[in-house]
Computed example of a mutant assay.
Amino acid sequence: MANKQALNIVKMKKMKADGERLSMLTAYDYPSALLAEEAGIELILVGDSLGNVVLGYDTTLPVTIDDMVYHTRSVTRGAQNTFIVADMPFMTYHGSIDETLRGVRRLMQEGRAQAVKMEGGLEICETVAAVVAAGVPVLGHIGLTPQSVNMIGGYRIQGKDVKDAKRLMDEAKALEAAGAFAVVLELVTEEVAQAISEALSIPTIGIGAGRYCDGQVLVFHDLLRYASPYREKRFVKTYADVGNVIREGISQYVQEVKDRSFPDEGHVFKADETVLESLYGGAGKDGE
């Protein structure tokens, strides 16, 4: 969309105030980013979920800063008029501020992202504030935080009791105070996500967090069922089953190669008779 105006963090805050929802989608490469932008997506997240979705890992933990730079650069080439956020991968923002800023700089300068995302609550607020002070927008992420999956005991719903709900509220407010421009709420009970959304002046973006967040984010491959085998997720709605279309198309190609129906007359290029004469010495291709 050549005439599309990319969002910025000021517009996003106004959209929340006006009650206008934000649409966000993950993308990991040039063609998916281009399609997302053409479809009107407002924010693209180059998530470290690429480890699970396109690199074949069991978790996001093996994803490196080099992986994130490579994929972010591909996405920003495809979606040049969309606000793009890149994930800071596992253990790249829990050391010194200098170390964190080196990773941020790579995602911004080499990857060409407009913002970075960090998972965590109170424990990362000082880092968030330092990155924001350096002039980089930060998207927070609380609730289910996949980088901490080994600490939280798996992929569990967050905010199911009073203590956990209070923790999430405190974390969200602390991230806002640290300067985050928005907060992702992942696998949070709807009631708690609603309360957090109403308490913050910055947008909340939900994934499995119910109907009352200020925006929603889904994984590209979930939305389009682009996986094999596909694992059903309660919080995901499938809008197209491209995985099945791809599988059927490749299967048909294999069959047509086997039965010699591809390529047919419409897929070949013809040479001039003089070319044939030169190849067969003027005797014709049958040697006569």
Rank of each mutant, 00 (worst) to 15 (best):
T82V: 13
L50Y: 08
Y70W: 14
D66Q: 12
K117P: 01
N52L: 14
Q114V: 13
G78M: 10
S251I: 10
E99A: 14
D259V: 05
D164G: 06
G56A: 13
Y155G: 00
V104L: 01
I157H: 07
P146Y: 03
A172M: 06
L107K: 15
V10E: 06
A172N: 01
M108N: 10
T26N: 05
M151W: 01
P89T: 12
Q147A: 14
R106H: 05
I65G: 06
D29Q: 08
L61I: 14
R106S: 06
K4N: 04
I9N: 04
A177F: 01
S74D: 06
S96K: 05
M1C: 08
G135D: 13
S278F: 11
T92M: 09
L55K: 14
H71S: 10
M108F: 04
V128L: 09
G120T: 02
D161Y: 07
H94C: 07
T60H: 11
K11D: 13
E110H: 06
L139N: 01
Y28D: 07
L45Q: 11
D66R: 12
R225A: 15
D241P: 00
D272Y: 11
Q114K: 13
F235D: 03
F235T: 03
A33R: 10
V63S: 02
A180L: 12
V236I: 15
E119Y: 03
A209T: 02
A27C: 10
M108P: 06
D58H: 01
H221G: 02
E277C: 00
Y239W: 06
V254K: 11
M91Q: 09
L45G: 11
V136S: 05
V192L: 04
P229D: 03
Y239I: 03
V184N: 13
T26G: 01
T145P: 02
G120D: 09
L107E: 11
D164V: 00
R231S: 02
L144Y: 08
V268K: 08
F235Q: 09
S197V: 13
E126W: 12
V219N: 00
D170E: 15
G140N: 02
A113S: 14
E248T: 11
L223N: 04
Y93V: 13
D67Q: 04
P62S: 08
D241H: 02
A33N: 05
I124A: 03
L45C: 05
M15T: 09
E190D: 10
L22K: 01
F181Y: 12
A271K: 14
M118T: 12
S261H: 03
D222E: 13
V54L: 14
T274V: 15
